[in-house]
Every structure is written in C-alpha cells, then in structure tokens.
Write a protein that binds this DNA or RNA. Structure first.
Length: 366
RNA sequence: GGGGUGUUGGGCCAGUGGUCUACGCCGCCGGACUGUCGAUCCGGUAUUUCACGGGUUCGAAUCCCGUACACCCCGCCA
C-alpha cells in the first residue's frame, strides 16, 4: 500500500464501501463526543470524515492534537447510516473507520482559525501567515482559478496559431512612462539592469524577424505606487502581436479570447462580439477618459452654448477662448447646496468599493 | 510627494472624560458526553491594560500635540 494515500479526500463514494484505504491530510475540524471522535480530514481535493473509536491506541493522540496537524489514516470505508449522511460533502455518504494513524506533522495553535471562512483578519495578519490563509477554501480556489485562466488563454492562443515566446527579464531601460525597477550588476560595477515594464522591444524584435503571430503571458514590472485594485511592482498581461493584420482582425482575436474566458470562468455578463467601439474623441468628450467605466451612468454634456450666453464670466470667457464647459446630469439632488466650489459625493449605486466614492464637480471648464 | 481614516487581550471588535477592576463573538485551556458534521453543555482564560511618547484634567481607551505603522483617496501607473 502506498505510504501516504490510496485516495484523495474527495474521492470516496458509497461504491467504495468495504475497501481498506489510506488518506493523508490536515485535521480541518474535530468533533469530540467523548466516546467517539470525528475528524474532517482535508486535502487539496476535499474533505472526508474520519471516525476514531475509543478502543484505538491513537484515540488520545487525536483527541489532544491541534487542528491543522497532518495525519495519515488507514481504515475501512463505511457506509453512513441514512440519517447521518452529510449532503453538503461529495464524500458525505461514507466515512473512514480509522485502524491505523500516523501523526506526520504536529501543528501548534494556528494564529488564524482556518475553518472560519468568514473571518476578516487584517491584510497584515493574512499576509504574515499567508501559508495558512491560502489553506482556506476561497483563497485556495483563487489560486486554482488563476492557473486555469492562464491555461485557457494559452490553449486559445495556440489554437489560433500564435507562437508563445519568452523574453528577457534582466534588460535595459526603455523609454516608457513608469519608473523602472533596477537590479545592480556584479559584472558591470556601478551599472544596473532594468526590469521590463512590458516586453515591447523584444516582441517587436521577434515580429521583424518574421515570426508572424506572437503571444506571451508577459511579466511586467513597474515601480509605481499600489492601489486598492492594483498590486505594486509586477503584473502579467496577455501580450499579442500579429503580422499583416487590420485593426478589426486584432479586435476580433481579443474579443473572442477574452469573451470566451469570461464566459467560462465568470457569471458576469459579457458583451457579445463585436463589442461597442468608441472613438477616442467621443470617449474623452462624453466620459472624460480614454478607458471609461461604462457601468458609471454619468455622462458629460456640452453646455458651452448655454454658458457662452450666461452671466458667469469665468465660464463665458473659457468658451470665448475656444474651451468647453461641460455638465453632469445628476438626479435626485434638488435642494443640495450647489454654490460655487461645492462638490458632490456620488456614491455610484454602491458599485465602487467602500471608501472609494469619488468627488465630481457639478460643472467644469476644459 | 499631498490628504483622510485608523491602531483596544491569540483573532475580530464594543466602548458617551468618572459606572472600565474594558463588553461580546471566535480561538485557546479544563471538565462532561458513543453519531456529529460551525457538535453540544458547564467552567476558565488573557504583562490593572487600550500602538509609542508627551500634554490638558481632580480623573483619559475616550480630548490635544508629536512619532511609528496600516489602510484608503489624489498624484503616478505607454
């Protein structure tokens, strides 16, 4: 018999009843009834209930063990009585009656309580004990999701005939917008490598060498400040390059790959291809941004004609000098004081993360 | 770089200048219990202490100033 396991913790079903099996995993939960112990044994795949009877030599060992200790259990797969079936577990129709038990790794009391999925420890605590936080189902699944998304992106790009290339990490600074990360060189004293902000130069080198269609899940490094939705330092992007392609052909590839990826991994609604196309000038005029968030219902209206004739010289002068005066239509604020300089907090229907509501001027000159 | 908010026992948090010898939940420890699955029930637990330093006050977790750290926003991010 394999020294650690014959099955994973998400494998055994009622058809396996009667088999002698061996499982290894973490003690996720312990229910101590004095005369009988129930251990929820957890591994990457799932949870299986282990039953320990008081006649077993290791009964006391399990009873006193801290959660998250790692054990190997050998025993018989037993059908559960109908009234004790746990319908929340795929393995809930069976349990393992432990006959042998090896304590592989004794755990101390963990600073995070792993079974509590609703816990909201500070970011500092969760990062300090990252190896514990990642044991929790939600974060564990996030890591798996990322793996699957990246695999799916690769499969689609390969299927479309793109070649995947790696490009150097230690390189020279290129004239892009962000600050570079620098790595001191031992060979060239006093000199530094820069980490690539994007694979731009290498990608172009490959294209002029005739490789026709390129993609990379490209690591990018930019030494810029973090944000709530933006980790500092590094990120990965699906980088695509095509030869002899029209703009619409490139859009079609992106719409297909990104659309299918969201359809496969997300329950969020994604536009069917072709996606709405917004000209740069229109985006800037209507949304004030070249990357507008279309969930935000507020649009800028051109009020230049009105203010040209209005009695407010600052705005009228702006229009006379070729500028624009624009306004937002904000409903439900009648009675709110709107003297010059007042700004409104627009909560945007609660979509934004807490504390990130933005201040928007009622009117502005541009 | 600028601004805002916050920091309370192992974790999450409550806490109007005196009723704080600081509440609750979780954890943890001890006890009971042979069918639970967030087990249950009983009892206990935590440098008289509220990030640190100083100040106001008869009296500070609570008010003021400074420092440190954290988070968020702006700047920044082709």
């Amino acid at each position: 018999m394999h020294p650690y396991r014959t099955h994973t913790c998400n494998e055994l079903r009622k058809e396996d009843a009667g088999k002698t099996v061996r499982l290894s995993g973490w003690m996720f939960r312990l229910r101590d009834h004095g005369g009988i112990l129930f251990v929820d044994l957890r591994d990457h795949y799932g949870i299986t209930q282990i039953v320990v009877h008081p006649s077993r030599s290791f009964f006391g060992l399990v009873e006193k063990a801290h959660l998250e200790s790692v054990i190997t259990v050998t025993g018989e797969v037993k059908l559960r009585d109908p009234e004790t079936i746990n319908h929340d577990l795929p393995t809930g129709e069976v349990e393992i009656e432990a006959n042998e038990l090896v304590m592989e790794g004794v755990s101390g009391v963990t600073p995070l309580y792993i079974p509590d999925e609703k816990a909201e420890e500070s970011e500092e605590m969760r990062l300090k004990y990252r190896f514990l936080d990642l044991r929790r189902e939600k974060l564990h699944n996030n890591i798996i999701l990322r793996s699957q998304v990246i695999r799916f992106l690769r499969e689609q790009m390969w299927a479309k005939g793109f070649n995947e290339f790696q490009t150097p990490i230690l390189t020279a600074s290129s004239p892009e917008g962000a600050r570079d990360y620098l790595v001191p060189s031992r060979i060239h004293r006093g000199m530094f490598y820069a980490l690539p902000q994007a694979p731009q130069m290498f990608k172009q080198l490959l294209m002029v060498s005739g490789f026709d269609k390129y993609f990379q899940i490209a690591p990018c490094f930019r030494d810029e400040a973090a944000r709530a939705d933006r980790s500092p330092g590094e990120f990965y992007q699906l980088d695509i390059e095509m030869s002899y392609a029209t703009q619409d052909e490139i859009f079609a590839v992106v719409e297909d790959v990104v659309g299918k990826t969201f359809a496969k991994f997300s329950t969020w609604q994604c536009n069917a291809a072709p996606w709405p196309r917004i000209k740069y000038r229109d985006a800037m005029m209507v949304y004030g941004s070249d990357k507008p968030d279309l969930r935000n219902p507020l649009k800028w209206f051109d009020m230049s004609d009105f203010f040209r004739r209005a009695n407010f010289k600052a705005f009228a002068a702006c229009v006379e000098n070729g500028g624009l005066v624009k306004g937002l239509l904000v409903k439900g604020i009648v009675g709110v004081e709107a003297r010059q300089g007042t700004r409104l907090h627009l909560l945007d229907e609660g979509r934004r993360a807490e504390g990130t509501d933005r201040e928007v001027p009622l009117a502005r000159a541009a």
